[in-house]
C-alpha cells in the first residue's frame, strides 16, 4: 500500500511522503548560509566543479535552459550570461526559500527575464520538448524517485537536448575515500553547527551522499530513462561527478 512505501533520508528510512518535507526542512534551515557553507565545505572548489559543468553544457545564445534544484542560482547566473535575446532561462526548485534567494540574485544581476518555478523534479510542470538543456547541480541526491525525475527531464527535453547532472559521487581512490569519509562525518557537522547552527542538516548531507548511486549506477539510470551518448566526468578524484546524456 502507498502509505507503507519507504525511502531513505540519509541513513534513516522514512515514509515516502515524509522525505520531501524533511528535505525541505533541511534547506529551509540552511538557505541563509548556503553559499557560505558551500565555500567553506569545499574550500571553494565547488566553483571549479560548476565552471567545468557549465563548460560541458556549451550553452548557445538561443537555448531554452532549465536549471533544476537551482538553489541560490550559481549555475543559472553563469548560464544566463551566455544566453542571447532569443534564449530563455528557467530556474526551478522544490524549496521556496532557496528559489527566492536564486530569484533575488538573478534580478540583482539584471536577469529580469528569467522564469522561476517552484516544482518537483519528479513531475516537471512543463510541456514535452520544451528545453534544449537541463542542468541539475547537487539536487538529484535529494529527489525521492530518481528514475521518475530522469524520465520527467527526458520528457521536457527537445530531441537533441542534453541533461547535465553535477552531483556528489564515489571517490575512486580508497585512500581518498577514507579521508573523505572522515572529513564528511567529523568535520562537516561541526562546521554546520558553528556556521549555520545546524549540525543535523550537514550530517544529512554526508549521509545522503553515501546513499546516492555511484557513477556507473547513475549512468545506467540515465540510459534506462532513454538518454544516449551518456558520459561521466569524475572531478576531484570522483568526490563529484558530472553525468551527461542526450535525448537523440
Amino acid at each position: 500500500m502507498a502509505q507503507d512505501k519507504t525511502t531513505h533520508f540519509g541513513y534513516e528510512d522514512v515514509r515516502w511522503e515524509d522525505k520531501a518535507r524533511r528535505v525541505e526542512q533541511v534547506f529551509d534551515s540552511v538557505a541563509g548560509r548556503y553559499d557560505l557553507m558551500n565555500d567553506l565545505m569545499s574550500m571553494g572548489v565547488h566553483r571549479v566543479w560548476k565552471r567545468f559543468a557549465i563548460g560541458l553544457a556549451a550553452v548557445r545564445p538561443e537555448d531554452a535552459v532549465l536549471d533544476l534544484a537551482a538553489g541560490t542560482g550559481d549555475l543559472a547566473l553563469a548560464m544566463a550570461g551566455r544566453l542571447g535575446p532569443r534564449g530563455r532561462m528557467t530556474l526551478a526548485d522544490y524549496n521556496g526559500n532557496m528559489l527566492a534567494l536564486g530569484r533575488d540574485r538573478m534580478l540583482n544581476a539584471g536577469h529580469s527575464d528569467a522564469t522561476f518555478v517552484q516544482g518537483d523534479a519528479e513531475a516537471l510542470p512543463f510541456a514535452d520538448d520544451s528545453f534544449d538543456l537541463v542542468t541539475m547541480a547537487f539536487g538529484l541526491r535529494n529527489v525521492r524517485d530518481k528514475d521518475a525525475a530522469l524520465a520527467s527531464i527526458y520528457r521536457v527535453l527537445r530531441p537533441g537536448g542534453r541533461l547535465l547532472v553535477l552531483e556528489f559521487s564515489k571517490p575512486r581512490n580508497p585512500l581518498l575515500a577514507r579521508a573523505y569519509d572522515a572529513y564528511s562525518f567529523s568535520v562537516l557537522p561541526r562546521l554546520g553547527q558553528a556556521v549555520a547552527d545546524d549540525a543535523d542538516s550537514y550530517r544529512y548531507l554526508a549521509e545522503s551522499i553515501r546513499r546516492h548511486p555511484d557513477q556507473d549506477t547513475l549512468q545506467g539510470m540515465f540510459e534506462l530513462a532513454g538518454f544516449e551518448r551518456t558520459q561521466v566526468y569524475n572531478l576531484t578524484g570522483g568526490i563529484v561527478a558530472v553525468h551527461r546524456g542526450y535525448k537523440l
Binding site: 567545468f52 563548460g55 560541458l56 556549451a58 558520459q231 561521466v232 566526468y233 569524475n234 572531478l235 558530472v242
Partner: peptide
C-alpha cells in the same frame, strides 16, 4: 574524461 571535457569545452 577530465581531459576530454576540458578539450570539448
Amino acid at each position: 574524461a577530465l581531459l576530454l571535457g576540458a578539450l570539448e569545452s
